[in-house]
Design a protein around this nucleic acid. Structure first.
Lengths: 258, 258
DNA sequence: CGATGTATTGAACTCGATCAAACAGTGTGG
DNA sequence: CCACACTGTTTGATCGAGTTCAATACATCG
C-alpha cells in the first residue's frame, strides 16, 4: 500500500484472436466467458481485452478513478481495499483467478476501492462506456456478471458477521477455511494453502493486529490443527478447524457425542 | 429477533389500479418506479403488488426462503440480519421508505438474511420467477434495481471499514450521521433522528455491546454534541460529530486552524 | 398496580492492541 | 563471499477499550 507503487499501465494487449484467447485461457471454466459460445465470442471481441501483467504491488485501478472496465482475474492474486480520509485502509477482499474485479462503486461509475497485485497477475478487461451497455448487449453475459455481483454481496455481508461478531480465533478459522474452499475451486488442494498476502494483509482484512494473527497461527500449529511454514499453511485437521469456526466448544462437543 | 414472532402473511393486496397506486405513493420519488412512465405502468401491473402492512416484529421473509420477489419499502422501517449456525445474529442494515429490500442471496435464489419490521411497515413487491425476468422485461426498471444493488454493495463495503477499523465512538458517529443523511433524503430534518430500533439493535449493527452504545450516547450528550431523549436524538453540533467520525483530534484541528 | 421490555450506570475483567525487541529470509553491492 | 539494509514474522510484557456482570431506573401496558 505504498504511495510510490506504480499504477499498472493501461495498455491493452490484444491477443491475435479473442476466440483463441478465451479457448486457451486456463481460467476459462471459472470465467464468465464460459457462458459464451464460440460464435458469441466474435460479437464481443471489441469489448474484451487482456491487460499487460502486473507485478506485485502494482495497482490495477485506484479508488476515485472512473470505471470504464470491469475485470476478470486471469492469473495470480490481488487484494482490494478501501482508504478512509485519515489514511487508514481496510482490505475488503482477496481475489483468485476467475473472480470478477471492479464491481464496487458502479453506482457512481467511480471505483470505491483500490486493487493491488499480491504477485505477478494478469486480468482480462471488459470495457464499456455505460454499465447499461453490458446489460443490453448480451443477456447471458449480463447474467453471468450479475452472478458475480451477487456473490460479492454475499461475501460482503458475511464479512459483517465475521468482523462484527466473531472472536479472533474464529476469524482466523474463517479465513483459512474460506481460502481452502476457494483454492479447491481452483482445482488445487483444499489442505495446502499457499498464501500470497502478508500477515499484515490478513490481519487488516480480519480487523486484527498482525501480532494476533501470528500468535493464533502458532497456537493452531501447537494444537496440530494446521502446519505453518512461512506462507505455506497446511490444514491438518479440518474438523477441529471447523469447530473453531463454528465456535462449538470442544468440551461440549465431546460430552455430547462420547 | 424472537422466534415466536409471526412471519407476515404472504397475502397480496391488489389495489384498484397499480397506476394509481404508484402515482399516489408518497415514496414514489424515492422508489424505482420513478423511472416508469404512466403507460409503462400498465405493462407492469402483473408483477407489482402491495403486501398487507406488517406489525413491529413481523418478518417479511426469513433466511433460507426461496426468493420470488424483491421489495421496495413503502412506509415504516425494517432491519435485516444474518443468523449463524450457533444462533448469533448480525444486523446488516436498517431500511427506510424507498429502499429496495431482498437483494441479498440472489446468487442462489435464496434469501441469506431475514427482514423484520421495526414498526408498522408496508412494502411493495416485485414478483418474478427468475431474476433474469426482471433483467429482460424492461431495461429502465432493471437499471433502477441495479442502482440499488450497487448502493447496497457500497454500504456493505463501508460497513467492513466501520466494523474492522473504527473505535466505538467513530462507529456511533457514523451511525448517527448516516441516519441523519438518509432521513434528510426522506425530506425530514437532518438534525432530529427518531429511532425505530432499540439500543440493542444499534449495538448489534455496530458490533458493540448495548452498554457501550448507551455510554457513548450519554457522553455525547454531556459534550453537547447531541441531545438524547429516549428514541429521539437531536444532533446539536454537526461539526463536532463529523470530527468524531473522521477521527480528527479536536486539539489538532484547533492548533491548525486557530 | 405489578409486569415486562428497554435503558442507564457502576465495577471488575478480559481479549486483543500496543509497545518493544529479537529473529528470519531476501536482496544488494562491495 | 560476507556485510548491510530491508521487510516480514515471531514472541514477550504491558495496557486499555470495550465487554461482561450486576443492579437500578424508567416507560408502557395489561
Amino acid at each position: 500500500m505504498k504511495n510510490e507503487s506504480i499504477v499498472a499501465a493501461k495498455k491493452v494487449v490484444h491477443l491475435k484472436a479473442i476466440t483463441d484467447t478465451c479457448q486457451l485461457c486456463h481460467a476459462k471454466d471459472l470465467c464468465m466467458s464460459s457462458c459464451l459460445k464460440p460464435d458469441d465470442m466474435e460479437r464481443f471481441k471489441h469489448i474484451i481485452g487482456h491487460r499487460a501483467p502486473m507485478d506485485r504491488g502494482q495497482r490495477l485501478y485506484m479508488a476515485g478513478e472512473h470505471i470504464n472496465s470491469i475485470y476478470v482475474l486471469h492469473s495470480g492474486s490481488v487484494k482490494s481495499y478501501l482508504e478512509s480520509e485519515d489514511g487508514e485502509s481496510q482490505i475488503t477482499g482477496f481475489y483468485l483467478p476467475g473472480d470478477v474485479i471492479g464491481i464496487h462503486g458502479l453506482k457512481n461509475a467511480t471505483h470505491s476501492d483500490t486493487v493491488e497485485a499480491l504477485e505477478t497477475s494478469s486480468v482480462c478487461a471488459l470495457r464499456f462506456s455505460k454499465i447499461e451497455d453490458i446489460s443490453t448487449a448480451f443477456p447471458p453475459l449480463q447474467n453471468q456478471i450479475m452472478r458475480f455481483v451477487f456473490s460479492e454481496m454475499d461475501h460482503d455481508q458475511e464479512m459483517m458477521m465475521v468482523l462484527g461478531k466473531m472472536s479472533a480465533d474464529r476469524r482466523m478459522a474463517y479465513f483459512l477455511l474460506d481460502m481452502a474452499k476457494r483454492l479447491k475451486n481452483q482445482g488445487l488442494s483444499n489442505s495446502r494453502i499457499n498464501l500470497t498476502m502478508t500477515r499484515h494483509d490478513i490481519a487488516n482484512y480480519l480487523g486484527l493486529a498482525v501480532e494476533t494473527v501470528s500468535r493464533i497461527l502458532t497456537r493452531m500449529q501447537k494444537s496440530e490443527i494446521i502446519d505453518v511454514e512461512r506462507r505455506s499453511i497446511t490444514i491438518l485437521d479440518h474438523a477441529k478447524l471447523k469447530n473453531t469456526y463454528s465456535c462449538v466448544e470442544d468440551d461440549i462437543v465431546n460430552s455430547h457425542f462420547q
